[in-house]
């Protein structure tokens, strides 16, 4: 039987959840035995070429690129897992949600205390367009599982992934469910 395919996505997060995945130490050798990685920043594969079994999502949805990529992940992955508080709640980036976007940008680029010579709003066409709010992934597409944490600990990720990939129930013990 072919190994299950896993893809991972970095949306609006800090890459901490990806780092936590690497933090499983030598168990990463077992993980490589267990799965094959498809599109992911870990192997730098940029596009989906085949159907994927599990998609791990880090970060909330804050711009048009995040949105398109999340739609793409939903289309190609059988199971989508929101990993970490940003994917699940919007997290720290979502602190901007109570302030109008225009005010946020003006404070950062025009009126902030470190702005020199008047400043300018970023307008390069290559920069993704910001959404009005930062959205948790499940407010955009259907999400199948949630692994909370900031980041979820290596043990949490390992326990959940191995359970899922070996067809067992993903029941996490108390110590492994944290929102920070």
């Amino acid at each position: 039987m072919a190994k299950p395919l896993v893809a991972t996505a970095p949306f609006t997060g800090c890459f901490g959840c990806h780092m936590s995945l690497l933090d499983i130490d030598e168990r990463i050798l077992d993980l490589v035995e267990l799965v094959e990685f498809d599109k992911s920043p870990i192997n730098d594969i940029k596009t989906f070429t085949r159907p994927v079994d599990v998609g791990l999502l880090e970060g909330g949805i804050s711009n048009d690129e995040n949105y398109e990529q999340l739609k793409l992940f939903r289309k190609h992955c059988k199971i989508l897992i929101s990993v970490g508080q940003c994917a699940i709640t919007g997290g720290v980036p979502a602190c901007r949600n109570t302030v109008p976007l225009k005010e946020c940008l003006e404070e950062a680029y025009l009126n902030g205390p470190t702005v020199v010579d008047g400043g300018v709003l970023p307008n390069d066409p290559d920069i993704p367009i910001l959404l009005d709010k930062v959205y948790p992934c499940h407010e955009v597409v259907k999400i199948d599982y949630f692994l909370p944490g900031c980041p979820p600990s290596a043990d949490t990720l390992w326990a959940a992934l191995t359970a899922l990939l070996t067809g067992k129930d993903v029941g996490l013990p108390y110590e492994l469910i944290k929102y920070d």
Partner: peptide, 17 residues
């Protein structure tokens, strides 16, 4: 929330200042 097994807030966030 931990004790009751809440993994995510499935209701839409209000986001009111």
């Amino acid at each position: 929330a931990y004790r009751l097994g809440m993994l995510a807030v499935t209701l839409p966030f209000l986001r009111k200042p």
